[in-house]
Design a protein around this nucleic acid. Sequence first.
DNA 1: CATGAATGAGCATTCATTCAT
DNA 2: CATGAATGAATGCTCATTCAT
Lengths: 217, 217, 217, 217
Amino acid sequence: VEESWRGAPTARGRRRGVPHRRRDEEVLQAASKIFYERGYADTTIQDVADELGILKGSLYHYIKTKEDLLVGLFDDLHAGIDEVIDEVSAAPGLDPLQRLDLYVRRHVLFNLDNLERISVYYTDLRRVSEGRRNGFVERRKFYERFVTSLIRDAQDAGLADPSLDAEMLSNCVFATIIWTYRWYRPDGRASAAEIAEQCAEFVVGGVVEGALSAPPA
Amino acid sequence: VEESWRGAPTARGRRRGVPHRRRDEEVLQAASKIFYERGYADTTIQDVADELGILKGSLYHYIKTKEDLLVGLFDDLHAGIDEVIDEVSAAPGLDPLQRLDLYVRRHVLFNLDNLERISVYYTDLRRVSEGRRNGFVERRKFYERFVTSLIRDAQDAGLADPSLDAEMLSNCVFATIIWTYRWYRPDGRASAAEIAEQCAEFVVGGVVEGALSAPPA
Amino acid sequence: VEESWRGAPTARGRRRGVPHRRRDEEVLQAASKIFYERGYADTTIQDVADELGILKGSLYHYIKTKEDLLVGLFDDLHAGIDEVIDEVSAAPGLDPLQRLDLYVRRHVLFNLDNLERISVYYTDLRRVSEGRRNGFVERRKFYERFVTSLIRDAQDAGLADPSLDAEMLSNCVFATIIWTYRWYRPDGRASAAEIAEQCAEFVVGGVVEGALSAPPA
Amino acid sequence: VEESWRGAPTARGRRRGVPHRRRDEEVLQAASKIFYERGYADTTIQDVADELGILKGSLYHYIKTKEDLLVGLFDDLHAGIDEVIDEVSAAPGLDPLQRLDLYVRRHVLFNLDNLERISVYYTDLRRVSEGRRNGFVERRKFYERFVTSLIRDAQDAGLADPSLDAEMLSNCVFATIIWTYRWYRPDGRASAAEIAEQCAEFVVGGVVEGALSAPPA
DNA sequence: CATGAATGAGCATTCATTCAT
DNA sequence: CATGAATGAATGCTCATTCAT
C-alpha cells in the first residue's frame, strides 16, 4: 500500500532501499496544501512546484503524472483509517455500542487531524482515473461494512433500535463523521476532541433510540 | 432572485415579458446532467451544447459565461429550500422537535428530488466567483440558524439534551441531510420517503438523548 | 461615387428613387461615433446596433458587411475633399502660394469639422479590402499631385525655395494638415479657424524659405 | 525601463543575470514585422509563432499576453527617442533654432531606421491597456514640451516668428516628423538622410517666418 | 422592416508533459 | 537532480453573418 501511488518503473533510480522518502513527503505536503486551497482542477503543476521552490519540470522527478499527487495523498489517508479500524477492533471489553462510539471518536479525530487532505479526498477523489479510484472505493466499503455490523450487533444485543435499517444508519453515521471537514475550524470555539465527543454522542443517540420520537403527521 | 443568475444586460434582448423561459430551463437541465456526470471542471461548454444539440457558440445566447450555468442551477436550488423553510415555519401546532423532524424530512426529500443539482452544488459551489458565491453561503447560514434555533427551543422546552451544543448539533443535522446525495440510489432498495423518515428519526434521536448513552473510556 | 459603398444588389428594395437616405446617414453617423471611440477592429456590429437602438440582425437591412460602414464613411469624406479641391481650383486671382495657403486652410477646416470620421479614416483605412481601398488611395494621390504642382508652380514663379523637392514638401504639407486630427481638441484654447490659419502659415513658411536658415553642423 | 514590458513575475524564471535576451529580441522582431504587415488586431499569436518557427503555445514562454509584444516594441522605441533628446540637449554651442533643426533630423532618422515599429506604434498604441498606455503618452508629452520650449527660446531670441503659438507649432513640427512613416519608401528616390534634412528645413522655415507670407483673403 | 436564435470559424490563453543540456 | 524551452491539444469565449418568422 505505502508506495502504490508511485507509477514507479520509470520514475527515479532509488538505488538503495527507500531513499528520499522525506522529499516525497514534502511534495505530498505541498500538493495537499495547494489542492486544499485551490482544488485539484484549478491547481497547476506550476503551483505545486512554486510551493516547493522548484521548477515544474523538476517536479517530474518525483511523480509521473499530476494524478500521482492525488493518489499519494489518498493512500496515506486510507492507511490512517485502516489503523483506526484495527485499533477499534482490537480494543478489549467493549460492547458494540461502545465500539461504535470509539470508532466515531477516532475517525473524527483522524479526519480533523488531516483536515486538508480529507477535504481534498472528498472533493477530488472523482478525478482519479477509474482503475485506481475503485481501489479507494472498495476500502471505503470495508469501513461501511464494519460500522454496519457494529450497528447490527447492537440491535441484536438489544442496545439499538431494531426498527431502523442498519445500512442506512451506517450512512448517517458516516455523514456525521465525514461532514465535520466542512464545518470544523481549527481556530474555532470547540476543540477537535470536543467535536469528536459530540459527534459520537449524536451518533449513538441516533442509533439507540431514533424510534422513540413520535413522527409528526 | 429568480432571474438573478442571468448576467443579463448584454445577454439577449428579452424586452417584452418573459419569453422563452422554457428554453432557459432546458439549458440548465442539460448543464445539470453533464455537470453531475463529469463535474464542472471537466465539462466543456461543448459538452453542454452537444447535450442540447446546438453548437457551442449558440449556447452563448443563453449565458454569458460558463459560470452562469452553475449559478442558475444554484439559484433554483436555494429557491426550493427557501420554500421548505417557509412551509416548516408556517406549519401549525408543532413543538420544536416535531418541527425539526418535519424540516429534515422535507429537506431530504427535496435534495433527493434534485439529486443531480444538489450533487453539483456541493461539489462545485467553490468554483463560483467569490462575489456570487457569498450570496449562496449567506443563504445557507440562514438555514443553519433556523435549525440551531429549533434545537435551542427544544432544549429550553426540555425536549432535547441541553448538554449538547446546539450549533454543533445543527452541523450534525445538516451532515445527515446533505450526505444523502452521496449514498442515495434512485433505483435502490429504499425509497426517498423512507430515507427521509429514517434520517429524521436518526436526527431526532441524536438531538434528544445523545447524553444518555454512557461514553466509553 | 455617392452610393458606391453599398454592395447594393441584394440589399434592400429601394423602390422609388433614393428612399431612406436619412436612415442610412444615421447608420453611418452611429458607426462613425463608435469606430472613433473604440476603433473598427474592436467594434462589434452589436455595438453599432446598440447605438442605433436596434438589434444587430436588423442592421443588415442597411449594410451587407461590416466593411460597408467603413466604406460609406470614407466615400463621404472623399466627396468633401473633392469639393475643397474644386473650390480652390476655381478661386480667381490667386498666385500658387496663395492657392496653397487656401487649400491648407480649407482642408484643415474640413478635417476638423469631420474629426471623428477623419480619425477613423486614417486609423482604419487599411482594414478595407484591397480592391475598394485602392480607389481611396488613388483619390488621395490626386490630392497630392494637386499640392505638388502648386508648389512647383510657386517655385517656377520664384515664390518658393527651388532647392527643395516639391514632392517631399507636399508630404510635409499633408503631414501638417492631416496630423491635426491627433492633437485638435474641440473644447481647446484654439478654434478650428485659428488652427487652420496657423497651419497654413507654417506650411507656407516651410515652402517659401526653408533654404534660408543655416543648417547646423 | 528596458525590461518593464515583461509582465515578469510569472513568466519564466530568469533568476540569474540576463539570459537569452537575444531570443527576446527575436520575438519582438518577429512581432514587429507581422504587426507592420497585418496590423495588431488582424495578427494572431499563431502568425507570430509561425514567423518564429515555433508553436503558438511556445510563444507564451516569452510573453504573458499578446499585448506584451506591443509594449515591448514601444518600450524600445521610447528608449531610442529618449536618447535622441539626451543627445540634442547635450550638444554644445547651438542656438535654439539649430537645436530644433538637429532634433528634427535625429528624430526623423530614428523613425526611418525603425520604420516598422514606428508604424506599429502610431497605428496600434490605442490597443494597449489604459494603464500601460498612459506611460507612453506621458513620455510623448515630455518630447512635446521639449520642442515647445525650443521654439519659445527661439522666439525670445528673435530667431522665430513670435506671432505664432509655440504649442501649435510644436504640433506641426511633430506632424512633419511623424508623418514620414506614412510616405517614406526605403527603396525610394530619397535617402533617409535627405528626408531628414528636408524635413528639418521645412520645419525651421515654418517656425522662422511663417508670419511673413501675406495670407489671402 | 425587425427580430433573435443559430451558425461556424476563429482566437488568446492554459497547461500537463517531455527532453536535451 | 535540476532546468527551462518547447510541445500540442484543449478550452472558454467572440463575432460577423444568415434566415425563418
